[in-house]
Simulated scan of single mutants.
Amino acid sequence: MLTNILGALLLFPFIILVVLIIVAKKIGLPKKKRIGWAVDWTTPFMVLTVLILIRAIWDVWLPILLIGVVCLIAIGFAVIERSREKEFRSSWVLRRTWRAYFLLLTVAYFLLFIIGITVQIIRYLN
Score class of each variant (00 low, 15 high):
residue 19 V to Y: 03
residue 20 L to T: 04
residue 20 L to N: 11
residue 21 I to T: 11
residue 21 I to C: 09
residue 21 I to F: 09
residue 22 I to P: 00
residue 25 K to D: 12
residue 27 I to P: 01
residue 30 P to I: 07
residue 30 P to R: 06
residue 32 K to G: 04
residue 32 K to V: 09
residue 33 K to A: 12
residue 33 K to E: 15
residue 33 K to G: 02
residue 34 R to H: 05
residue 34 R to N: 10
residue 36 G to N: 13
residue 36 G to P: 00
residue 37 W to M: 03
residue 37 W to I: 00
residue 38 A to L: 03
residue 39 V to C: 08
residue 39 V to L: 11
residue 42 T to G: 01
residue 43 T to C: 01
residue 45 F to H: 05
residue 45 F to M: 10
residue 46 M to K: 08
residue 46 M to V: 15
residue 47 V to Q: 02
residue 48 L to N: 03
residue 50 V to D: 02
residue 52 I to P: 01
residue 52 I to Q: 07
residue 52 I to N: 05
residue 52 I to Y: 06
residue 56 A to P: 02
residue 56 A to Q: 13
residue 57 I to A: 06
residue 57 I to L: 06
residue 58 W to T: 07
residue 58 W to V: 07
residue 61 W to K: 13
residue 61 W to P: 03
residue 61 W to E: 15
residue 62 L to M: 11
residue 64 I to C: 09
residue 65 L to N: 15
residue 65 L to P: 06
residue 66 L to H: 09
residue 66 L to P: 08
residue 66 L to Q: 08
residue 66 L to A: 13
residue 67 I to W: 13
residue 67 I to T: 14
residue 69 V to F: 13
residue 69 V to C: 09
residue 71 C to V: 14
residue 72 L to F: 11
residue 73 I to L: 13
residue 74 A to P: 01
residue 74 A to N: 05
residue 74 A to F: 08
residue 78 A to Q: 01
residue 79 V to Y: 01
residue 82 R to K: 13
residue 83 S to Q: 09
residue 84 R to V: 10
residue 85 E to I: 06
residue 85 E to T: 11
residue 86 K to W: 08
residue 87 E to D: 08
residue 87 E to N: 08
residue 87 E to P: 01
residue 89 R to F: 05
residue 89 R to H: 07
residue 90 S to C: 05
residue 90 S to G: 06
residue 92 W to M: 10
residue 95 R to W: 09
residue 96 R to K: 07
residue 98 W to E: 02
residue 98 W to H: 07
residue 99 R to S: 10
residue 99 R to T: 11
residue 99 R to W: 11
residue 100 A to G: 04
residue 100 A to Q: 02
residue 101 Y to M: 10
residue 101 Y to G: 07
residue 101 Y to Q: 07
residue 102 F to V: 00
residue 102 F to K: 01
residue 103 L to V: 07
residue 103 L to K: 03
residue 106 T to F: 14
residue 107 V to N: 01
residue 108 A to F: 10
residue 110 F to T: 08
residue 111 L to I: 15
residue 111 L to C: 12
residue 111 L to V: 14
residue 112 L to W: 02
residue 114 I to C: 06
residue 114 I to L: 13
residue 115 I to Q: 04
residue 115 I to Y: 05
residue 117 I to P: 00
residue 118 T to E: 15
residue 118 T to V: 15
residue 119 V to P: 01
residue 120 Q to E: 13
residue 120 Q to M: 12
residue 122 I to M: 08
residue 123 R to M: 10
residue 124 Y to M: 10
residue 125 L to E: 05
